[in-house]
Design a binder for these strands. Structure first.
Length: 187
DNA sequence: GAAGGGATTCGC
DNA sequence: CGAATCCCTTCG
Protein backbone atom coordinates (compact mmCIF):
# COMPACT_ATOMS: atom_id res chain seq x y z
CA UNK A 1 0.00 0.00 0.00
CA UNK A 2 1.03 3.65 -0.07
CA UNK A 3 3.68 4.80 2.35
CA UNK A 4 2.62 5.92 5.79
CA UNK A 5 3.91 8.37 8.31
CA UNK A 6 3.48 7.80 12.04
CA UNK A 7 1.89 10.76 13.79
CA UNK A 8 4.46 12.33 16.15
CA UNK A 9 3.89 13.29 19.78
CA UNK A 10 3.20 16.98 19.05
CA UNK A 11 0.11 15.92 17.09
CA UNK A 12 -1.41 14.72 20.38
CA UNK A 13 -0.14 17.60 22.51
CA UNK A 14 -3.16 19.78 21.72
CA UNK A 15 -6.70 20.07 23.03
CA UNK A 16 -8.85 16.95 22.73
CA UNK A 17 -11.41 18.45 20.35
CA UNK A 18 -8.75 19.42 17.80
CA UNK A 19 -7.15 16.00 18.03
CA UNK A 20 -10.53 14.26 17.76
CA UNK A 21 -11.31 16.13 14.54
CA UNK A 22 -7.85 15.64 13.06
CA UNK A 23 -7.81 11.90 13.81
CA UNK A 24 -10.65 11.37 11.34
CA UNK A 25 -9.23 9.75 8.22
CA UNK A 26 -6.03 8.62 9.96
CA UNK A 27 -4.97 4.99 10.16
CA UNK A 28 -4.74 2.71 13.16
CA UNK A 29 -1.99 0.17 12.51
CA UNK A 30 -2.02 -2.83 14.82
CA UNK A 31 0.67 -5.47 14.55
CA UNK A 32 -0.19 -8.96 15.76
CA UNK A 33 2.71 -11.34 15.28
CA UNK A 34 3.79 -10.54 11.72
CA UNK A 35 0.38 -9.39 10.57
CA UNK A 36 -0.70 -5.78 10.18
CA UNK A 37 -4.34 -4.99 10.92
CA UNK A 38 -5.20 -1.57 9.52
CA UNK A 39 -8.33 0.56 9.78
CA UNK A 40 -9.20 4.16 8.98
CA UNK A 41 -10.66 6.20 11.83
CA UNK A 42 -14.14 7.43 10.92
CA UNK A 43 -15.62 8.31 14.34
CA UNK A 44 -14.18 9.81 17.54
CA UNK A 45 -15.25 11.51 20.77
CA UNK A 46 -13.37 14.17 22.73
CA UNK A 47 -13.16 14.04 26.53
CA UNK A 48 -11.87 17.42 27.56
CA UNK A 49 -10.38 16.90 31.01
CA UNK A 50 -11.28 16.85 34.73
CA UNK A 51 -13.86 19.63 34.31
CA UNK A 52 -15.73 17.54 31.69
CA UNK A 53 -18.15 15.45 33.76
CA UNK A 54 -18.29 12.77 31.06
CA UNK A 55 -14.53 12.19 31.22
CA UNK A 56 -13.11 9.50 33.47
CA UNK A 57 -10.56 12.00 34.73
CA UNK A 58 -13.38 14.05 36.30
CA UNK A 59 -13.63 11.33 38.98
CA UNK A 60 -10.09 12.08 40.04
CA UNK A 61 -6.72 10.47 39.57
CA UNK A 62 -6.96 6.74 40.32
CA UNK A 63 -5.12 3.59 39.31
CA UNK A 64 -7.47 3.13 36.37
CA UNK A 65 -7.29 6.71 35.08
CA UNK A 66 -3.58 7.18 35.74
CA UNK A 67 -2.66 6.99 32.05
CA UNK A 68 -5.08 9.82 31.24
CA UNK A 69 -3.09 12.08 33.55
CA UNK A 70 0.16 11.22 31.80
CA UNK A 71 1.81 12.48 28.60
CA UNK A 72 -0.11 12.80 25.32
CA UNK A 73 0.25 10.20 22.60
CA UNK A 74 -0.32 7.11 24.72
CA UNK A 75 -3.18 4.62 24.64
CA UNK A 76 -5.76 4.59 27.45
CA UNK A 77 -7.51 1.22 27.33
CA UNK A 78 -10.11 0.08 29.85
CA UNK A 79 -12.76 -2.60 30.24
CA UNK A 80 -16.39 -1.59 30.37
CA UNK A 81 -19.58 -3.53 31.16
CA UNK A 82 -17.49 -6.55 32.00
CA UNK A 83 -16.80 -7.51 28.40
CA UNK A 84 -15.78 -4.69 26.11
CA UNK A 85 -12.53 -2.80 25.83
CA UNK A 86 -12.42 0.82 24.70
CA UNK A 87 -9.45 2.50 23.04
CA UNK A 88 -8.64 6.13 23.77
CA UNK A 89 -5.63 8.28 22.95
CA UNK A 90 -4.35 10.69 25.57
CA UNK A 91 -4.21 14.31 24.42
CA UNK A 92 -3.00 17.62 25.81
CA UNK A 93 -2.06 20.29 26.12
CA UNK A 94 0.54 18.89 28.49
CA UNK A 95 -0.67 16.49 31.15
CA UNK A 96 -4.18 17.78 31.04
CA UNK A 97 -6.02 14.46 31.64
CA UNK A 98 -7.95 14.65 28.39
CA UNK A 99 -8.41 11.98 25.74
CA UNK A 100 -10.11 10.97 22.52
CA UNK A 101 -12.20 7.80 22.29
CA UNK A 102 -11.84 5.97 18.97
CA UNK A 103 -15.35 4.77 18.14
CA UNK A 104 -15.26 3.28 14.64
CA UNK A 105 -12.93 2.19 11.87
CA UNK A 106 -13.39 1.59 8.19
CA UNK A 107 -11.55 -1.65 7.28
CA UNK A 108 -8.41 -1.10 5.22
CA UNK A 109 -6.32 -4.23 5.58
CA UNK A 110 -6.80 -7.54 7.40
CA UNK A 111 -9.82 -6.22 9.30
CA UNK A 112 -12.54 -8.71 8.48
CA UNK A 113 -14.94 -8.41 11.39
CA UNK A 114 -16.77 -5.17 11.92
CA UNK A 115 -14.96 -2.39 13.75
CA UNK A 116 -17.89 0.00 14.21
CA UNK A 117 -18.42 0.85 17.88
CA UNK A 118 -15.65 1.09 20.50
CA UNK A 119 -16.08 -2.45 21.83
CA UNK A 120 -16.17 -4.10 18.42
CA UNK A 121 -13.23 -2.01 17.28
CA UNK A 122 -11.07 -3.40 20.07
CA UNK A 123 -12.22 -6.93 19.31
CA UNK A 124 -11.38 -6.49 15.62
CA UNK A 125 -7.90 -5.18 16.38
CA UNK A 126 -7.23 -7.53 19.31
CA UNK A 127 -6.76 -4.66 21.73
CA UNK A 128 -6.96 -5.31 25.46
CA UNK A 129 -5.56 -3.96 28.72
CA UNK A 130 -2.05 -5.02 27.87
CA UNK A 131 -1.93 -2.01 25.54
CA UNK A 132 -2.96 0.43 28.27
CA UNK A 133 -0.26 3.09 28.43
CA UNK A 134 1.33 2.04 25.13
CA UNK A 135 3.20 4.78 23.22
CA UNK A 136 1.31 5.25 19.95
CA UNK A 137 4.40 6.36 18.04
CA UNK A 138 6.02 2.95 18.02
CA UNK A 139 5.57 -0.79 18.40
CA UNK A 140 2.51 -2.99 17.98
CA UNK A 141 -0.05 -0.17 17.92
CA UNK A 142 0.49 3.14 16.13
CA UNK A 143 -1.54 5.85 14.42
CA UNK A 144 -0.37 6.94 10.99
CA UNK A 145 -1.30 9.06 8.04
CA UNK A 146 -1.28 7.68 4.50
CA UNK A 147 0.66 9.90 2.10
CA UNK A 148 -1.71 12.33 0.45
CA UNK A 149 -4.78 11.24 2.38
CA UNK A 150 -7.15 12.54 3.52
CA UNK A 151 -7.43 15.70 1.48
CA UNK A 152 -10.55 17.25 2.94
CA UNK A 153 -13.34 15.71 4.96
CA UNK A 154 -16.83 16.81 5.82
CA UNK A 155 -17.10 16.40 9.57
CA UNK A 156 -20.33 16.07 11.55
CA UNK A 157 -20.44 16.99 15.27
CA UNK A 158 -23.05 15.43 17.57
CA UNK A 159 -23.61 14.69 21.26
CA UNK A 160 -21.46 11.91 22.69
CA UNK A 161 -22.86 8.42 23.18
CA UNK A 162 -23.58 6.81 26.56
CA UNK A 163 -22.88 9.84 28.74
CA UNK A 164 -26.39 10.80 29.86
CA UNK A 165 -25.18 10.95 33.45
CA UNK A 166 -22.91 13.93 32.70
CA UNK A 167 -25.42 16.74 33.20
CA UNK A 168 -24.87 19.74 30.94
CA UNK A 169 -21.84 17.99 29.43
CA UNK A 170 -23.99 15.18 28.03
CA UNK A 171 -25.34 17.33 25.21
CA UNK A 172 -22.19 19.03 24.04
CA UNK A 173 -21.28 18.22 20.40
CA UNK A 174 -18.01 16.42 21.06
CA UNK A 175 -18.62 13.32 18.94
CA UNK A 176 -17.21 13.64 15.44
CA UNK A 177 -17.60 11.49 12.37
CA UNK A 178 -17.02 11.59 8.65
CA UNK A 179 -20.28 12.63 6.98
CA UNK A 180 -21.97 9.77 5.17
CA UNK A 181 -19.39 7.16 6.08
CA UNK A 182 -21.08 3.73 6.25
CA UNK A 183 -18.90 2.49 9.13
CA UNK A 184 -19.93 4.98 11.82
CA UNK A 185 -21.44 3.24 14.86
CA UNK A 186 -24.83 4.91 14.65
CA UNK A 187 -26.54 7.69 12.76
C1' DG B 1 -36.14 -3.55 26.02
C1' DA B 2 -33.26 -6.17 28.97
C1' DA B 3 -29.46 -8.84 30.38
C1' DG B 4 -24.84 -10.07 30.46
C1' DG B 5 -20.36 -9.52 32.73
C1' DG B 6 -16.12 -7.87 35.48
C1' DA B 7 -13.33 -4.09 37.07
C1' DT B 8 -13.60 -0.10 39.72
C1' DT B 9 -15.17 3.09 43.07
C1' DC B 10 -17.62 4.61 47.04
C1' DG B 11 -20.03 4.18 51.21
C1' DC B 12 -20.66 1.85 55.46
C1' DC C 1 -16.88 -5.60 53.08
C1' DG C 2 -21.38 -5.02 49.64
C1' DA C 3 -23.68 -2.20 46.25
C1' DA C 4 -23.76 0.66 42.50
C1' DT C 5 -21.92 2.15 38.31
C1' DC C 6 -20.10 1.92 33.74
C1' DC C 7 -17.36 6.30 27.03
C1' DC C 8 -21.31 -1.45 25.16
C1' DT C 9 -23.23 -5.28 22.49
C1' DT C 10 -26.29 -8.85 21.63
C1' DC C 11 -30.21 -10.96 22.18
C1' DG C 12 -35.30 -11.14 22.70
Amino acid sequence: MTSMQILPHPFYDRDAESVARDLLGKLIVRRVDDRLLIGRIVETEAYLGPHDLAAHSSKGRTARTEVMFGPPGHAYVYLIYGMHYCLNVVTGPGEHASAVLIRALEPVENVSITASGPGRLCRALQIDRRLNGHDLTQGELVVAQAEGFPRSLEIVARARVGVDYAGEWAGKPLRFYIAGNPYISRA
